[in-house]
């Protein structure tokens, strides 16, 4: 029983790496998703359905396919990968960056959808009223739209964090499964499952995975309720 609480260095490393990837991913994804979510919610343009389809593609694509496509673009011979490697000497594929990029691509449509829906629910008449009071578009966004869409934004942030914690397919194909470098929690669980006799180690990682995901969901609910309460107080 006590084996369930004895975490090895590699297990701690996987937990730490997962948290870092998820947090960085959520922080990077959020502003991008707010911008794209606002654009999709408020603007009409030719080809909007196609753009929406492309943004939502990672939701339905097999994650392994997403990983492979990322490899094609960010690999050392890919358009961006080659540029980064030759200009800055940075290899993206099979690195920590790759794990973060894979998580961003997979969680982006989820976050964008959440934020877009909450922006759509903000009454545009309030934005109109703010403009008649002299507010610029930027001020309208930061003082009216964003605060009123806050529950969706918070949900989006937590969703991004939680989805990144669980990311597996795209990460293993694009970032690999390198212990201490790209081996996140799901990859570590997968590796342990392959080795006979590692049931205790697998269980330790599974427990952490469940707890982290549960905490993220509880935090999302808690923050959401606080926002709603502060708005109606």
């Amino acid at each position: 029983m006590s084996e369930l609480f004895k975490y090895t260095a590699s297990e701690w490393s996987a937990i730490q790496l997962s948290l870092s990837v998820a947090l960085i991913c959520a922080v990077i994804t959020l502003p991008l998703a707010i911008a794209v979510g606002w654009f999709l919610a408020r603007k009409k343009f030719f080809g909007k359905s196609v753009v929406e389809g492309i943004i939502h593609l990672p939701l339905v694509l097999p994650p392994i396919t997403t990983g492979y496509l990322l490899l094609l673009v960010f690999g050392n011979r890919g358009v961006f990968g080659k540029f980064f490697y030759e200009t800055f000497g940075i290899q993206i594929a099979f690195s920590f960056y790759a794990a973060v990029i894979a998580a961003i691509f997979v969680s982006f449509p989820l976050v964008t959808r959440s934020i877009r829906l909450s922006i759509e629910l903000v009454d545009q008449k309030l934005e109109e009223a703010a403009r008649t009071l002299g507010a610029s578009n930027l001020r309208v966004f930061f003082t009216i739209t964003l605060p009123l869409a806050l529950p969706g934004v918070i949900s989006g942030f937590i969703l991004s964090f939680a989805r990144s914690l669980g990311e597996f397919g795209a990460t293993i194909s694009f970032a690999g499964n390198i212990e201490g470098k790209t081996q996140t929690l799901p990859l570590a669980i997968f590796s342990e499952m392959q080795v006979p006799g590692q049931e205790a180690s697998t269980m330790r990682l599974v427990v952490v995975s469940v707890i982290l995901s549960l905490l993220a969901m509880i935090a999302a609910e808690f923050l959401n309720k606080r926002v709603i309460k502060s708005k109606t107080a």
Partner: peptide, 19 residues
């Protein structure tokens, strides 16, 4: 532009900012 017109508009549904 709307914001530079200095026209006070009182709407039918007030449109006070709820937050």
């Amino acid at each position: 532009k709307i914001r530079q017109r200095r026209v006070g508009y009182v709407f039918q549904d007030e449109r006070l900012f709820p937050h």
